[in-house]
Structure formats: structure tokens, C-alpha cells
Lab assay of single mutants.
Amino acid sequence: EAEIKAARERAIVPLEARMKQFKDMLLERGVSAFSTWEKELHKIVFDPRYLLLNPKERKQVFDQYVKTR
């Protein structure tokens, strides 16, 4: 159900806005820029903003977040 709702939101909200919300979530959840995606996943997986991006986009935004922190 959450994935269906997220898919609707992905269709409406522009990618750039969704990427910003995802980055904000990473900051708010205290995701370490010195860790790996796999180790940090448990901090963010239950946040509704996690589903704003598809899996490939999530990883790309995380990688970008790590490089710029």
C-alpha cells in the first residue's frame, strides 16, 4: 500500500523536489557520509520519504550525499 501511494506521488511531484526531500531525510535521520548504503539503510527504510525515489535514484542520491558531505 505504501508503495502504491509513493508511486502516485512519484508521478505528481517533480524529480528534483523528491530528490531534495530524500536528501533532507538523510540529514534528519543522521545518515553518516562515512558509512555504506547497506549500513545506513535501517535508519531510513521506514521513513515515507524513502519511497519517493525508485531504488536506482535512491542509491544515486545517497552516493551524491556522501561525496558532498
Rank of each mutant, 00 (worst) to 15 (best):
Y50H: 04
I4V: 12
Q60C: 13
E40V: 06
E16M: 05
L52Q: 05
R69W: 13
D24Q: 08
N54A: 13
L15T: 12
Y65E: 03
L15A: 10
L53N: 01
Q60Y: 13
P55C: 06
K5A: 06
E57P: 01
K56S: 15
V61K: 01
E38V: 03
Q21H: 04
D24A: 09
K56N: 10
K20I: 02
G30H: 09
K20T: 08
D24T: 15
R18A: 05
H42C: 09
F46I: 09
F46G: 15
I44S: 02
F46W: 13
F62E: 02
I4D: 14
N54G: 13
V13G: 06
F46R: 15
Q64W: 06
A6F: 07
L52H: 05
Y50E: 00
N54R: 11
L26V: 01
A11L: 11
E40M: 03
R18E: 03
K56A: 15
M19G: 04
Y50V: 03
E38F: 03
F46V: 14
D47W: 00
A2Y: 04
P14E: 08
K67A: 14
K67H: 13
Q21N: 08
K5C: 14
E3S: 09
L26Q: 00
A2P: 09
F46E: 15
V66M: 10
K67E: 14
E40L: 02
V61F: 03
Q64D: 14
P55Q: 12
V66P: 02
Y65K: 01
E9N: 12
R8Q: 11
E16V: 07
Q21G: 05
Y50S: 02
G30K: 14
V13A: 12
R49Y: 00
V31M: 02
R8V: 06
K59M: 10
R49P: 01
R29W: 02
A2V: 05
R49H: 02
T68H: 15
S35Y: 02
M25L: 10
N54L: 13
G30E: 08
R10K: 14
E3P: 05
H42R: 11
M19S: 10
E1S: 05
A7P: 06
L51H: 10
D24I: 14
K67P: 03
A7K: 14
S35M: 03
K39L: 09
M19H: 08
K23L: 10
R8M: 09
M25F: 03
A11Y: 08
R49K: 03
E1M: 15
I12T: 14
K39Q: 12
K23C: 11
I44W: 01
W37K: 01
V61Q: 11
F22S: 00
P55S: 10
L26P: 00
R18C: 04
D24G: 06
L41W: 05
K56M: 08
R58T: 03
Y65L: 09
A17Y: 09
M19T: 08
L51I: 13
V45W: 08
Q64S: 11
Y50A: 02
E16I: 13
P55D: 11
K20E: 04
A33R: 11
H42G: 08
N54I: 02
T68M: 09
P55V: 07
V66C: 12
V13S: 10
H42T: 10
T36M: 04
E3I: 12
E3Y: 08
W37G: 02
V45F: 12
Y65V: 06
G30M: 04
N54M: 10
W37C: 02
I4T: 07
G30F: 03
W37L: 07
V13K: 12
P55G: 10
A11N: 08
I44N: 02
D47I: 00
Q64V: 10
E57Y: 13
K59V: 14
F22M: 00
Y50K: 02
K23N: 09
R8S: 09
P48Y: 10
K39A: 11
R18I: 01
R58D: 00
P48A: 10
K43F: 01
A6E: 15
R69K: 14
P14G: 08
A17S: 10
A33H: 09
R29L: 11
V66W: 04
K59E: 15
W37Y: 08
E57N: 12
E57I: 05
E28D: 12
L15F: 06
L15Y: 08
F22K: 00
R10E: 12
R18D: 03
A2L: 10
G30P: 01
A2K: 15
E38G: 07
Y65A: 04
P14K: 05
E16Y: 09
T36E: 07
L53A: 01
W37H: 03
E40D: 08
E3L: 08
I12E: 14
E57C: 04
L26D: 00
F22W: 10
V13H: 15
E28Y: 05
Q60K: 13
F34P: 07
R29G: 03
V31H: 00
R69I: 15
K59H: 15
K23H: 14
E9M: 10
A2R: 14
E9C: 01
T36Y: 05
T36V: 08
A6L: 11
L51S: 09
P48R: 10
K20W: 04
K5L: 12
R29N: 15
V45K: 13
Y50G: 01
I44V: 10
V31L: 02
V61L: 06
R49F: 00
K20G: 12
E57H: 06
D63M: 08
D63R: 07
L51Q: 12
R29P: 00
L53F: 02
K43S: 03
K5V: 06
E38S: 10
L27S: 13
R69S: 14
R18Y: 03
K20A: 04
Q64G: 09
E1V: 06
H42N: 10
D24L: 11
E28S: 05
P14R: 06
V45I: 11
A7V: 11
L53G: 00
E28L: 03
P48N: 12
K56Y: 14
V66I: 09
S35D: 05
K59G: 09
